[in-house]
Simulated assay, not measured.
Amino acid sequence: MPTKSQTDLLKKVREIQIVSRKVVDELLGGEYKSVFKGRGMEFDEVREYMPGDEVRTIDWNVTARTGKPFVKRFIEEREQALFFLVDMSASGSFGSTGQSKNEVAAELCGILAFSAIKNNDKVGLIIFTDEIELFVPPDKGQLHVLHIIRAILGFEPKHTGTRIACALDYLGKMVKKKCVTFLISDFQDADYDPSLKLAAIHYDLIAITITDPRELELPNAGLVELADAETGEQILVDTASAAARNTFRMAAKARSLETKAALTRLNIDQIDVRTDRDYMRDLIRFFRTRERRQTL
C-alpha cells in the first residue's frame, strides 16, 4: 500500500497531467509546432507533374524513364528530441509562496513535454546538481512523460551544489544530434559561460530561470538568520535595517542582470519564471515572441 508521501506524489503528478494536457490543447499545441520545427525536409514520393508545381522539383531520372514529367514530393521531417536539463540543487527546494522552485520546474516540464509528444517528438531528462544525478533517454508517449514528471517531483539529490557546466558538458557527450534543450535553473552558479557558448552552437538552447520573491527582496522581519542551502553558510541579518534590505536587493538584482547579460550575449532565449506569478503568461509570451521573430 502506498505511503502518504507516495500518495501525495501521485496526486501531484496527476494534477500536472490534467493541467498540462488542458494547456496544450487550448494554448500551446500549435505554438509548439510552429516554433520548434523539424530537422528539415525528407523525401516522401514522386508523382506526376501538375500545372503550378515548382519546376525545380522535377525528378529528371523518373521523367526520362517514363516519358512523363514527375516531381519529387517532400514532407517536413518532424520528429526531433526535446531535452530538459533540470537543476535540483538544494536551493531548488526553497519556496515562500506555497510552491518550491522544483515543483514549478516539474510543472513546466510537464506542459512542454506534453506539447512535444503531441507533435510526435521524443522527450529526455538530465537532472543535475554539482554532479549528474539522473539521465533519462529520450522517448515518446504519455507514460514516459509521466515518468519524467514523477522523477522530478520525487527526486532526492545526493549533492547540494550547482554546476551548470557539468550538465551542459554531459549533454554534449550523450546527445550528438541537434535538439531543443530547456535549461531550467535558478542560475546560482558561476564559470559556466564556455559550456553555455558551446551548447548554444550545437543545440536550440532555451534558459528558464526560476526565482522566488524572497530571493530578490527581504521582508522587514527583524533579526533573521539566513542560510545558503547549497553551502550551509549562515549569516544573521537585521532585516529591520533599510540599508541591509537595500544591499540584499541590489546584490540580487546584480546577479539577475549578470545572468541575463550572459544569455543575451550568446543569443540564448530566456524565460523568466517566478514562483509567485502565473508562469503560463511567461511561456506564452516566449512562444509568440519567438514565432514572430521567425516569420520576419
Score class of each variant (00 low, 15 high):
A254H: 14
T3W: 04
G110A: 08
G52T: 08
F287Q: 01
D59T: 07
A243M: 10
S115G: 10
M250G: 08
Q234W: 10
E217P: 06
K33Y: 11
R292S: 13
D282H: 07
D278T: 07
R277A: 15
W60M: 08
R249M: 12
D212H: 03
A242H: 13
V24Q: 01
R47N: 09
Q270T: 13
I235R: 12
E42M: 10
K118H: 10
E133N: 06
D191W: 06
R293N: 11
L226T: 11
I148N: 01
T57M: 12
F94I: 03
I208L: 10
R21G: 07
S20P: 07
D121Y: 04
I148F: 02
E26Q: 14
A81L: 03
K177G: 02
D139G: 14
V62D: 03
V46C: 12
A252N: 07
R249P: 06
A252P: 06
Y170R: 13
R65I: 08
K173V: 09
A240T: 14
R163W: 03
I111A: 00
V136K: 06
R245K: 12
L263I: 07
T97K: 11
Q234R: 15
E31Q: 14
T3P: 05
M1H: 15
V71F: 03
A251R: 12
R274L: 07
N267K: 14
D44V: 14
D276A: 05
S89N: 05
L28R: 02
V224K: 01
A190H: 15
V136W: 02
M41Y: 14
F286W: 07
R39P: 00
T259M: 13
R21T: 11
M88N: 10
I126D: 00
Q234E: 15
V62F: 01
E225R: 15
H202K: 13
K140F: 13
I132T: 05
R39H: 09
R245M: 07
M41N: 14
A240R: 13
E225C: 12
E230D: 11
T162V: 06
L236M: 15
D121E: 04
R285D: 10
N61P: 07
E291V: 04
R78H: 05
G29M: 08
P219Q: 10
D25F: 12
V145P: 00
A244G: 09
T181M: 03
C179A: 15
A113D: 01
L28I: 09
A229G: 04
S34Q: 12
P213M: 02
K4T: 13
A200L: 03
N120A: 13
F182Y: 12
D238W: 05
R290Q: 09
K158M: 06
G98N: 04
S115N: 08
F83K: 00
R277P: 02
T160K: 12
A252L: 05
I18F: 15
L263Q: 03
A151V: 05
F182M: 03
D169V: 10
F182H: 04
R150K: 14
Q80N: 10
V237P: 02
K177A: 08
R245T: 08
L216A: 12
F128Q: 00
S195Q: 09
K33L: 13
L283W: 00
I152H: 00
K197Y: 08
I206Y: 01
R245L: 09
I149F: 04
K12H: 15
A229E: 08
F182D: 00
R277D: 13
L28G: 01
R47V: 09
G154Y: 01
T160C: 06
V273T: 02
Q17I: 09
R78W: 00
A261W: 11
